[in-house]
Structure formats: C-alpha cells, structure tokens
C-alpha cells in the first residue's frame, strides 16, 4: 500500500510506543534499583487517570480553557500518583527489603489487586467518560486528519519527560546516587548514600511518569475504568523486558519496537493477531538476546 498509509501506521505505532514507554520506564527503574517487578505499577497509571478525571470534571465546571484544565489535572494526577507510589513502597516493599525476592513479588501482586478493587469500590465498575481536554489544533487540519492533536501532545510530553529523566539521572546528585545504588547497593551504602531515600525517589519518579501516561492515553481514548492499568501494565512490562529490564534507554527502545510491531502487524496483516505479534517479537528477541535489546548480561557472582 501507499506511503501515506505506511506513515499513518507509523504514527499510531509511535503513539502506542510513547505510552508504553512512559509506563515501562517505571518498571525498569524500579527493577534496576531493587530487582523487583512492581506489578502494581499499572494501577498507579490507572489512579493517575482517575485523579485527572475528577480534577478535570470539577475544573470544567468553572469554565476554564481546556488546555489549562489539562495542565492542572496533569499536575494534580502526577502529585497524587507519586504519593501513592511513595506510600506503596513504604507499606508493601520496604518491610520486605531483605526478604526473598519472591515475597516482594507476591506483595506487588497483592498491591495490584488491592488498588484495583479499591478504585472499583470507591469509584465505579463502569466505564466512565474521560473529557477531551486537549483542544483541536488549527495547524493540523492541513494534514487531513493524519495526526490528531492528542497524538501531538503525547509525542511532545513523552519527549520532554524523557529528556528531563535523562538529565536527572546523568547530571544531578540524586541521579548519581540512583546509578550507584543500581550498581551495588552495599557499596553505595558504604560510601554514605541514603538507600532508602534513593529507592523512595525512584518510586516517586516512576509513579509520576505512569500518571503522565495515564492522563495522556485517557484523553486519547476517551474512557477509563478500574481495569485499564492491567492490560497497559502488562504491555509496558513486555516492552521493558524486550528492551532489557533495568536499562532506561532499553525500556524506551523496547516500547517503540513493541508499539510499531503491533501497529504494522495490524495494518498489513490482521488485528486478529495483534497480541501474537507482540509476543512473537518478545520470544524472538529473548532467544537471540536473553537480556533484552540493550540489557547487560548478568554475570553470576562466584
């Protein structure tokens, strides 16, 4: 088919990829530092979306312009989700810091169920409409509907978040401490790094990014319920593993590979097999690069 079609599929793949990346970063950062797969991460994404929905509904009543509502809802969702991430770490993971890794994993699964059911009971089990917070941009009309304003915002926000994250990790003191903790927890402790603080910050940053993803995708899709975090979380987890879990550039690369695979698979073959493509790619990459695209191979300590 023609080039225009290819470009459209590319754009939808990038949209998916951006969302996966925002969630996958949280998985990979946490894994890099505490070797824990935080299964409740998808739920943080969902809580971010719900928070934004509540804030936006209230603000929309005041008649504020859409983009301002969007910005405020986003900030509140980020703060709120970050607080959830922080609390979750303190309650569910910190007491298990020195327990076998399996215990923390089970605790994460429990946390995931708890948060899902908490939102189910406190909010609703139905799908609820999410307001279209992002106005239509005039300059996109010339493109003939190829790119929607939500997609533009998704790309922009994702890019900004990633640049900020890279700067934070490369050039700040806490970033340096995070890298040190990821390399060797005991050594980091010995040189005077406050590990508890580093881990808490990691959870806060990861949760904040998940919330950004939640708000963006909800205003793109237009509806949310308590269960959205599960599927998005699983896909993002696959993306993180694909790119090499623990590696930040890997998570981003894995997300785009996954998003584009799904999009082109749907476009050129059939959407019947969308998930099949996603998992075939995962299997293939793990066969040839067991630690993921950019993951470092783990050397067994003797």
């Amino acid at each position: 088919m023609d080039l225009n079609y290819l470009l459209q599929l590319f754009i939808s793949g990038m949209t998916r990829g951006s969302i996966y990346a925002l969630i996958a970063l949280g998985y990979t950062m946490v894994y890099g530092i505490v070797q824990l797969i935080n299964f409740a991460h998808g739920e943080i994404y969902m809580i971010g979306a719900f928070t934004a929905l509540i804030v936006a509904t209230v603000l929309n009543m005041t008649g504020m312009p859409g983009i301002a509502v969007f910005a405020i809802a986003m900030v509140v969702a980020v703060v709120y989700s970050a607080a959830y991430g922080f609390t979750m770490e303190k309650i569910a993971y910190k007491p298990l810091r020195n327990a076998p890794r399996l215990s923390a994993l089970i605790s994460a699964i429990g946390m995931s169920y708890f948060l899902q059911n908490y939102v189910l009971l406190a909010q609703t089990s139905d799908f609820v409409s999410f307001p279209r917070l992002i106005p239509k941009f005039r300059f996109l009309e010339g493109l003939g509907g190829m790119l929607s304003s939500t997609q533009v915002i998704i790309f922009l926000v994702t890019a900004v978040v990633m640049v900020l994250l890279t700067l934070l990790i490369k050039f700040t003191k806490i970033g340096k401490a995070m890298r040190a903790t990821a390399q060797d927890k005991t050594m980091a402790l010995l040189v005077g790094i406050n590990i508890n603080q580093v881990i808490a910050v990691t959870f806060v940053i990861g949760s904040a990014m998940a919330a950004v993803g939640g708000v963006l995708i909800s205003s793109h899709v237009g509806q949310i319920n308590f269960y959205i975090g599960f599927i998005a979380g699983i896909k993002a987890f696959v993306a993180a593993v694909l790119g090499g879990i623990g590696s930040i550039p890997g998570a981003v690369l894995g997300s785009f590979v996954l998003g584009l695979t799904e999009s082109f698979g749907t476009g050129y073959i059939s959407s019947d097999y969308e998930d099949v493509f996603a998992f075939i790619i995962l299997v293939l990459i793990l066969i040839f690069r067991p630690s993921g695209l950019l993951g470092k191979s783990q050397k067994e300590k003797i």
Partner: peptide, 10 residues
C-alpha cells in the same frame, strides 16, 4: 482493552 485503535482505524 488496547490503549489505541488508530492502526485498525487507519
């Protein structure tokens, strides 16, 4: 439950 349906819509 997918996050985006733009591929099939395209």
């Amino acid at each position: 439950g997918a996050v985006d349906y733009s591929a099939i819509i395209n």
